[in-house]
Amino acid sequence: MYWEYGMGGWAAVSMTVTVILFWLLLIAAIVALFRSVARGERFRGGRSAARPSGAEQALAERFARGEIDEEEYRHRLGVLRSLGHTDTS
């Protein structure tokens, strides 16, 4: 028994199942991607913990060059972190 356009009943069923499987796999891949991104942020501790801000980097470079002493470095670093400074330039 043939359906319209010459397709048998099993062809229509297999096409329907294939389309449903395609969409399920696509949705599962998107969910897996979002979960891996979220998990990565949680393990890294966010952007500020993974990489110092531009201001913190500049302060560390001044300390390394000997322009400021350790006491001044720690004080200024504490001020930057208390302000929540996240400039990454």
Rank of each mutant, 00 (worst) to 15 (best):
M1T: 05
Y2A: 11
Y2V: 12
Y2K: 06
Y2I: 13
Y2M: 11
W3L: 15
W3H: 09
E4Q: 11
E4I: 09
E4T: 07
Y5F: 12
G6V: 03
G8M: 03
G8L: 03
G8H: 01
G9I: 10
W10V: 05
W10M: 08
S14C: 09
T16V: 07
T16R: 04
V17H: 04
V19L: 10
V19F: 09
V19E: 03
V19D: 01
I20E: 00
L21P: 00
F22R: 02
F22S: 07
W23F: 15
W23Q: 06
W23H: 08
L24E: 00
L24I: 04
L25V: 05
L25C: 06
L26D: 04
L26G: 12
I27D: 04
I27V: 09
I27P: 00
A28L: 09
A29V: 08
A29K: 06
I30F: 09
A32E: 05
A32W: 05
L33S: 08
L33I: 06
L33M: 09
F34S: 07
R35C: 04
R35W: 06
S36C: 03
S36H: 08
V37L: 10
V37N: 03
A38E: 13
A38H: 10
R39D: 10
R42C: 01
R42Q: 14
R42M: 07
F43E: 11
R44P: 00
R44A: 14
R44V: 11
R44I: 07
R44D: 12
R44W: 04
G45R: 05
G45D: 04
G46K: 10
G46M: 08
R47L: 12
S48H: 11
S48W: 05
S48V: 11
A50M: 09
R51L: 15
R51H: 12
R51Y: 12
R51F: 14
S53I: 02
S53H: 02
S53E: 01
S53K: 01
G54Y: 01
G54Q: 03
E56A: 07
E56P: 00
E56V: 03
Q57N: 08
A58L: 12
L59A: 01
L59G: 00
E61Q: 14
R62L: 14
R62C: 04
R62N: 07
F63V: 04
F63W: 13
F63Y: 15
A64M: 11
R65K: 13
R65V: 08
E67I: 04
E67C: 02
I68Q: 00
I68M: 01
D69W: 11
D69R: 11
D69A: 11
E70D: 14
E70H: 13
E72N: 06
E72Y: 01
E72C: 02
Y73R: 10
Y73K: 03
R76G: 00
R76T: 10
L77F: 00
G78A: 02
G78I: 01
G78H: 00
V79F: 09
V79M: 12
L80G: 01
L80E: 00
L80R: 01
S82F: 08
G84A: 08
T86M: 12
T86A: 14
T86E: 15
T86F: 10
D87Q: 13
D87E: 15
D87Y: 12
T88G: 06
S89N: 11
